[in-house]
């Protein structure tokens, strides 16, 4: 069961299933799957920090939220072009990551967690109070995005069209992350996680590597944030706040840190649970909380590790 061909065929099979999803799922489910892919990218980018570099961030929604707002502001004031706004969003996220990261990587452990949390909350406050630009607590409503300039009502207005657009974007983003973690740069990050002092002694500029990891993760979070703004066609301060950051971290933990694919699974589980529970129970947060607690005890290394173990046993 664990033969090499399975490992090689599995990604292709998943891709085929994802490509066929619009024929298998109704519009409601397809929208959810689109959201899962977007949050999967956010969680996987956080995994680069948490799982690979060993930096636990509780403010990863910063890049996500800043990019979503940049996308929204460009779309409402200049042009609602999908790729241009995506570019603007990622650029804004990288810029913000550079500034905050230069400060954050000086701290370690819980202090790093707290600084990132503070930066995320600052972005939340800015979005909440800078009403002329961000719309304040009402947020911003966005027009339909266009793939090519001038195309009226284009491909992205429908659920299926937007799904395929997101799927392509997801595959590109995920492949980029895979490349990063298997590159010498990614291996150096794992080295820093395992033994920072030794890496420094060997001659690596550890702070520089951490900052680069922080900015790469921020860029990918921004990429996801722009996609989310384009899908929802609405941005609000909550996108940059504690709830979003905590949700992303929960996805990483549930899926399994340091695996990239785990956090994507985690995103699927968390969003599906949230949707299913919130339609069935009024007290869905209670059930979600119990599930989190149960996972700590019964799935200590996350879903990805549990699946791998099951396969190894079979």
């Amino acid at each position: 069961m664990n033969a090499p061909w399975v490992r090689r065929a599995l990604p292709a099979l998943v891709l085929v299933l994802l490509a066929a999803a619009p024929f298998l799922l109704n519009g409601f489910r397809l929208r959810l799957l689109t959201e899962v892919l977007i949050f999967g990218l956010l969680a996987a980018s956080l995994d680069l920090l948490v799982g690979y570099t060993g930096l636990t961030s509780l403010g990863h929604a910063l890049g996500f939220g800043v990019s979503a707002y940049a996308t929204g502001i460009v779309a409402t004031r200049l042009i609602a072009n999908a790729s241009l706004t995506l570019l603007a969003g990622v650029a804004a996220a990288v810029l913000v990551s550079l500034v905050t990261g230069a400060l954050a990587v000086r701290a370690r452990g819980v202090y790093f967690l707290m600084l990132t949390l503070a930066f995320g909350q600052l972005a939340f406050s800015l979005a909440d109070t800078w009403t002329p630009v961000t719309g304040g607590s009402n947020g911003l409503s966005l027009p339909v995005f266009q793939l090519v300039p001038g195309a009226e009502g284009g491909l992205l207005s429908g659920v299926v069209g937007f799904y395929y657009y997101t799927l392509v974007a997801f595959v590109l983003g995920y492949a980029a992350l895979r490349r990063v973690v298997s590159s010498p740069f990614g291996l150096a990050l794992v080295g820093i996680r395992e033994n920072e002092a030794r890496m420094r002694a060997v001659g690596y500029a550890v702070q520089g590597y951490k900052l680069a990891a922080y900015c790469t993760a921020g860029a990918l979070a921004g990429y996801a944030g722009a996609l989310y703004a384009q899908q929802q066609r609405f941005v609000s301060p909550g996108l940059a706040g504690f709830e979003t950051s905590a949700l992303a971290l929960v996805m990483v933990i549930i899926g399994g840190r340091g695996t990239l694919v785990g956090p994507v699974l985690g995103a699927g589980v968390v969003l599906l649970l949230r949707d299913e529970l919130s339609t069935r129970f009024e007290e869905w947060q209670l059930v979600l909380g119990v599930v989190f607690i149960a996972i700590v005890y019964f799935l200590p290394r996350g879903l990805a590790a549990a699946l791998r173990q099951r396969r190894a046993v079979a």
Binding site: V50, T56, I253, R257, E283, L286, L288, V296, P300
Partner: peptide, 23 residues
């Protein structure tokens, strides 16, 4: 097992307590 599991555990507990209060 480090801070991550504790974060998930205590976050879960906070959801449960807050939701009980809301009920």
């Amino acid at each position: 097992r480090g801070h991550l599991d504790q974060a998930l555990l205590t976050l879960g507990a906070s959801y449960v307590l807050a939701e009980i209060a809301a009920i």
